[in-house]
Simulated assay, not measured.
Amino acid sequence: MQSLRETGRLPKARWSPSPNFGPRPEGAAISLLVVHNISLPPGQFGGPEIEEFFCNRLDHSAHPFFETIRGVEVSAHALIRRDGSVVQFVSLLERAWHAGRSCFEGEEECNDFSVGIELEGTDDIPYTPDQYRALAQVARMVIAAWPSVTEERVTGHCDIAPGRKTDPGPAFDWAEFRAILARTGDKE
């Protein structure tokens, strides 16, 4: 069985390939995990719209908000739904388009060296226990495959694009996530 580092595919994740990715720059090593949130339409959960958006299949006439994102081509490596299920859009070996203009510890263009994980949610609605557990499991796999991604190098979109992005927002309980991540690490 091939490892995550060889395949870039998260075990047990449903594969839904996005065209919105590219190669990582020569010599770019994965060393950061970025936590995001998304809901489409805003504040609504459970529908197919996030997946359709990341795969450039969103029906922009289905909701007024969708017109505001017409022509936007973005992706993340994976999405964690409210029930904790994981959908993967881009191989972790490739460069997903999730961070935009960004900087972490003086290093610009975080897409080049990061893994982007979206949580189905909003800045101000609490995330589910299933999402925290699934995110901790994914983070632990990434940390094991790429030791340069330490627990300290798991951060929010708001931290790498301050003033431009706010996610995962105040509803994301970093202390709870880090406690679950530590327990996940104890099992290895």
Rank of each mutant, 00 (worst) to 15 (best):
F65S: 06
P64Q: 03
T150S: 02
G46S: 05
G71L: 00
A175D: 14
G156K: 06
V74I: 13
R153C: 04
P129L: 01
H157E: 13
R133E: 04
E151G: 14
A179S: 14
E51Q: 12
R133L: 01
R70E: 12
E109C: 11
A62L: 08
F172M: 05
L93W: 05
G71A: 00
F104M: 04
L93I: 04
S91A: 10
D83T: 09
E109R: 12
D159V: 13
V87Q: 09
V74A: 15
T128F: 06
R57I: 08
V115C: 03
E109V: 12
E120G: 01
V115Y: 04
G84K: 06
R164V: 11
E120S: 01
T150L: 02
I69H: 06
D123M: 12
V138Q: 03
R183E: 14
S61Y: 05
Y127C: 00
T155P: 12
L93G: 10
V87S: 08
A139C: 08
T166K: 12
Q131D: 03
H63C: 08
P170Q: 13
D123R: 15
A139Q: 08
L119I: 00
L119R: 07
G47T: 02
S102W: 01
Q131G: 06
R101C: 09
C103N: 13
A78P: 13
V87I: 12
F53Q: 10
H60W: 14
G106E: 04
V90P: 07
T150Q: 05
S114A: 10
R81I: 09
D124C: 12
T122V: 10
E49T: 09
C55A: 10
W146A: 07
E151H: 14
D186E: 15
D186S: 14
V86S: 05
E108Y: 12
G156L: 00
F113A: 04
S61L: 07
S85W: 09
T122E: 11
D173N: 04
A76W: 04
F53T: 07
R164A: 11
V115W: 01
S75M: 07
E120W: 09
A144H: 08
A99R: 01
S61A: 07
G185S: 10
C103D: 09
A78G: 14
A134K: 00
H98L: 08
G47A: 06
T155S: 11
T128P: 01
I160P: 02
A99N: 13
L58E: 05
D123K: 15
I160C: 00
A78Y: 14
W174G: 04
F54R: 03
H63L: 06
E118Q: 15
Q131C: 04
P168G: 01
V154Q: 00
G169W: 01
G121W: 05
D159P: 11
P129R: 02
H60E: 13
E152V: 07
E105G: 12
S91R: 10
G71Q: 05
I180S: 01
N111W: 03
V115H: 00
S61E: 08
L135C: 07
A134M: 03
F104N: 05
A161T: 02
E94V: 11
Q137M: 14
I125M: 14
E118R: 15
K165F: 09
R70W: 11
G156V: 00
E73G: 11
P129H: 02
N111M: 00
P168N: 03
R164M: 12
P48G: 11
I125D: 15
G84L: 05
I180D: 04
L58Q: 07
Y132P: 03
C110Y: 06
